[in-house]
């Protein structure tokens, strides 16, 4: 086994070269380069997690904005509905008032017209009475030769008119 057979003449060379090469590996590669490589990887991990956090924060902000928008939307909706209801009731009141005025006008016109009709019919009735009384007096004078008084004729006509 050369490992044991050669140990006396090779151990110093083995140890020397191992320390030299491993020293190079440790000091140049291990201490000089590996921290930079690992630093790059760590920086990347930090960047990825930072970006993820930023994305999460942006997501939360978007949610907040959406909730805010919903609240404001609901608010303006109720405001608009209130405005609409107010406008409706105002319009209704205004039209009621105008209808009332028009109703009163119409009623007044109807009353005037009725009064005019009444007057006309009264006048017509009075004329009919006079004409009927004259006619009755003529008929009485012609039939019986008696000159009936104006009053009596008028009463007889009224009685006859009242009986229909």
């Amino acid at each position: 086994m050369p490992q044991i057979a050669q140990i006396a003449e090779t151990y110093s060379s083995q140890i020397f070269w191992l320390l030299l090469t491993f020293g190079f590996v440790f000091f140049v590669i291990g201490l000089g380069m590996v921290p930079k490589v690992q630093g790059t990887a760590d920086a990347r991990d930090a960047k990825i997690s930072g970006d993820l956090d930023a994305a999460k924060a942006a997501f939360a902000r978007a949610d907040e904005a959406e909730a805010d928008y919903k609240v404001r939307d609901a608010q303006s909706r109720t405001a608009a509905q209130a405005l609409l209801a107010k406008a409706k009731s105002d319009a209704a009141k205004a039209s009621e008032a105008r209808i009332a005025v028009a109703d009163a006008d119409v009623a007044a016109m109807i009353a005037a017209a009725e009064a005019r009709i009444q007057a006309a019919s009264n006048a017509a009735m009075a004329e009919i009475e006079t004409v009927a009384a004259d006619a009755a007096r003529d008929m009485v004078a012609r039939i019986s030769g008696v000159n009936a008084s104006d009053e009596a004729a008028r009463n007889a006509v009224k009685a006859a008119l009242a009986h229909g």
């Binding site: 090779t10 110093s12 020397f16 070269w17 190079f24 590669i29 380069m33």
Partner: peptide
């Protein structure tokens, strides 16, 4: 002390070199 550059030392140097190139 004898520090002859042996085939063993050569492979130590090679391992260090390959590792160096790898990490570069």
């Amino acid at each position: 002390f004898n520090i002859a550059f042996t085939n063993s030392a050569l492979y130590m140097v090679l391992a260090a070199l390959v590792l160096w190139i790898f990490v570069i």
